[in-house]
């Protein structure tokens, strides 16, 4: 018996669900071929990024490595680095999160200018940032002079200064990636939530923030990694004192004057910590906001 040829079939499900999402790579899939001239520069670029680290690995004194990375100075610097990077990441989140939301959702006057200003620390040499902080919060700085005069608060040479310097250089990473995630997501969900009667504050906590969580993860990791590696702004603004302001990058810079093996060992330690941090967040950070 012949079936009606053009019957749409009433049993067809009206759009099958795809519980496994689009993440799985399909090995059957082919793509348009890449132009071959890209491979050369791409490999060279990869080499420029990876080979120096290999150089570091090759130069390391592996016999003394355990002793070098567990020296008092190294552990003190590592501890300080982790603490300050965590604090500045928290500060980034506390200040940069709202900033990103305002930039993405609010309509502040001069939005373009504001966004450029936020990006400034990304393109400034960090040491310039450190100087700028010094001339703002330093003893003779724009604000620092009053902090000193009325409150007796001096920021430079303190751990607080380290955190501020790290926040200064790291916050743009958080703001930019969060704002990007917000813009990609669009405000349609927030609009729906409002028409369901949710107040702005409720919408923020129950819709905006949860939708942002994946992007937030990578943004936080980026900020933490940047804070961990911060050098220029710290040395210019906070100085360098063991246990107080001498973070791991500063310790490395100092040790390389006297003990190259020590500096290399600490560099590897920093590479390892950064690698762990980035690998932890890699999937989201690389794939970006969904």
């Amino acid at each position: 018996m012949a079936a009606a040829p053009s019957s749409p079939g009433p049993l067809r499900p009206d759009r099958p669900s795809v519980p496994f999402g689009r993440g799985g790579a399909d090995r059957h899939r082919t793509r348009a071929a890449l132009p071959w001239p890209l491979w050369g520069p791409a490999l060279a670029g990869l080499g420029l990024l990876v080979l120096p680290v290999l150089g570091l690995v090759a130069r390391a004194d592996w016999v003394r490595l355990p002793e070098l990375v567990t020296s008092d100075a190294a552990l003190t610097a590592l501890g300080l680095s982790l603490r300050t990077a965590a604090a500045s990441t928290a500060l980034c989140l506390l200040l940069g999160g709202p900033l990103a939301v305002v930039l993405a959702r609010g309509r502040p006057p001069g939005l373009r200018v504001l966004r450029s200003l936020v990006l400034l620390p990304l393109v400034l040499p960090p040491v310039v940032g450190g100087l700028a902080l010094l001339y703002l919060l330093g003893r003779t700085g724009l604000v620092g002079r009053y902090l000193d005069l009325y409150l007796g608060v001096r920021v430079p040479f303190t751990t607080t200064a380290v955190v501020l310097a790290q926040t200064f250089v790291a916050m743009p990473f958080l703001v930019v990636s969060l704002e990007g995630a917000l813009r990609t997501a669009g405000d349609r969900y927030e609009t729906v939530a409002a028409t369901l009667g949710a107040r702005p504050w409720t919408v923020f906590w129950r819709v905006t923030v949860p939708l942002l969580l994946p992007g937030l993860g990578s943004a936080v990791v980026l900020a933490f990694a940047r804070a961990l590696g911060e050098f220029g702004a710290t040395i210019a603004f906070a100085g360098s004192l063991a246990g107080q302001t001498r973070t791991l990058p500063l310790e490395i810079y100092l040790q390389r004057e006297s003990d190259v093996d020590g500096a290399v060992a600490l560099s590897l330690l920093l590479v390892a910590v950064a690698a762990v941090v980035v690998v932890l967040a890699r999937p989201r950070a690389v794939e970006g906001a969904r």
Binding site: R188, Y189, T191, V192, A193, A194, T195, L196, G197, A198, R199, P200, V203, V207, P210, L211, L213
Partner: peptide, 19 residues
Amino acid sequence: PPHRRGVGLLAQQPLLFPH
């Protein structure tokens, strides 16, 4: 403002909160 209007909106896309 939208959240105090008592006006509900059903759009083309369901826009269910994915989380």
